[in-house]
Design a protein around this nucleic acid. Sequence first.
DNA 1: GTTATTTCTGAAATCGATTTCATGAACGCA
DNA 2: TGCGTTCATGAAATCGATTTCAGAAATAAC
Lengths: 363, 363
Amino acid sequence: MDKKPTTAPKGRQQPRVKIEDVARKANVSPATVSRVLNHPEIVRPELRDRVMRHIADLSYTRDSAARALKSGRMRTIGIIVPTLALGIFAEGVEALQNRLSESGYTLFIANSQYDQRRELQELQSLIERGIDGIVLVGGSHERELRALIEQAAVPVITTYVSKAVGGIPAIGIDNESATREMTDYLRRLGHVHFGAIANVVPASNDRSRARLDGIQRALSEAGIPLKPTQIIKADYSLAQGRSALRQLLNDHPDTTAVICTTDTLAIGAMAEARKMGLAVPGALSITGFDDIELAAQMDPPLTTISVPAAEIGRGAADYLINAISGSPVPKSVLLPYRLVMRASTAPPRPGERPVRRHQARDQ
Amino acid sequence: MDKKPTTAPKGRQQPRVKIEDVARKANVSPATVSRVLNHPEIVRPELRDRVMRHIADLSYTRDSAARALKSGRMRTIGIIVPTLALGIFAEGVEALQNRLSESGYTLFIANSQYDQRRELQELQSLIERGIDGIVLVGGSHERELRALIEQAAVPVITTYVSKAVGGIPAIGIDNESATREMTDYLRRLGHVHFGAIANVVPASNDRSRARLDGIQRALSEAGIPLKPTQIIKADYSLAQGRSALRQLLNDHPDTTAVICTTDTLAIGAMAEARKMGLAVPGALSITGFDDIELAAQMDPPLTTISVPAAEIGRGAADYLINAISGSPVPKSVLLPYRLVMRASTAPPRPGERPVRRHQARDQ
DNA sequence: GTTATTTCTGAAATCGATTTCATGAACGCA
DNA sequence: TGCGTTCATGAAATCGATTTCAGAAATAAC
């Protein structure tokens, strides 16, 4: 009871503990304290312990601004994702953050809402913050972006795609090849009448674009190219998956296989198929992309492409940490996707072809 | 073609443009340049324009580390969420980031994986980074946490809960009251045989704890308290929702209403109910919590509680911005939830009581 | 026309940690 | 014992922007 909690005059915050305070208490120079913190091995053990004790005593933490100023390194990485609402991005960000945290880095996060203009602004702001590395998503960006990054001389990597564009290295999967493989798989099952539902709105989404390309090319090569009306463009909502399926089947009632560029769209499509009385996969095979948690739990479980989001996040972290430290880094990293065959796909059964719903639609 | 791209010797990065460089070019002192940037109104317009022109010319951006060192403000906020994998958190983070971005703040993100020890470490690291404010989730934390925050004298707010605990103000909904209301609603429908599926594993999740409390209290007050076996504890995965429902109905085949503390669990439960041949809501009413996108799209659409995640994020941003600038701030902010009645709930129909599945289980 | 006031600008101190350089102590070897 | 190393430590310069303080210039007041 000898220490009244003198309700500090509020106006003045207690001054921060500085390295000098620790030095004085421990009866050494500030230089030594700094060495204990940064290169403990070059300080005599006995001294080191003493200093450490005082550091703990005063619960001293160094001022990162001063540190960054002197060293030129903020130990900070920035990421700009289109949105966090998509589990696949959230998962990647989480893995990235975890790996960075292990290495003493902290993650700035920003989102562009699929707006390239905004992406550029956020990047500007991150660079002003002095980040040491930057993670982007996808391969299409404002033209100024590259100049900005080059001028800042900040290591950069883009994610969820596999090909370096405009000098920006990438880590991710080959989206086009994935849907190509999916399409081939359905062809081998015997399907001939295809439809595609693609989230190519907004246009800046080059991943989905590549996915759609994969479908189109595979079918063109097979001699059964998709007609424009067999391709429904949507955003990435479940509701659009529903309406897209309805529209597709309205225009092409003989469709037996629907390839969606995201699981969310596929799940919407499945819901609508059920509502329309179409058995999946009996009357209609449906496939997704991403392998979100729900995909395996659907009834029937959804055939899809598994994207290694966590690996992408970790890989991006490793890449940047290496690049910052000057270690050699690869041009790009191609990660494998996985075609996950579940029960939403089956050979077409001629007897169960979707019936025309026109008559029933106006009731 | 007069400018060979002399492939800079790689070793030496072009030195950063400093305020002094701008000053020299513009033939003024560094002080004046600084003033142009920070208090343009006190500089003679003519001079100001000249300086600005040179700033643009050299595309000078100030060093945020030096700036932060001198001013003591980083213009940076930190958030620690349990995980980003839950859409409800991702949505809140996104809204928070957007609002902060408008005010020139940048967001550090970290995740604790529901581990309070880890939360503390991440907080430590964020404080060392000199953040100006911190956002937490929920009300249960390591004991040291509060001391750490107080010592750093950093404004803090916790989210997704409504009651300030241990001096930490909160913004969010009253979870207990929400499930209480949900329970009452089911009671009014005529239900008597309840079951609860709660994601109270890991134990640190006080939101779910409160939700479960709401159910228990409402039923106790109604004179039909839940027996321990009517409460299934789970984590937050869809798969656990499935197994939980199976276990619940195994022990209590007469159950007609199942209250889940998250939508994910509820969706799992619905999937399992279907598999068991139980009609929802005919034989079994099921409710969720969170109102994730999928909830409305289920068949039948899920009755649930809508949590205003975006508003929570925005509110947290506003709170901290005010607190930092010294503006008055409320003790806590209670936001309204919304009971969303959809088609997964209905009065119990005695004729369609769940049948005992024991006999069928070993096939 | 002189003094008082206001307005604007520059010199220099400052924020706090890091690191180079120099010095003194300890050690090895002959 | 003496000389040359190696090792550990402290003094002081440094990172880049901000801001106080003081002085110069311009304006107003009489």
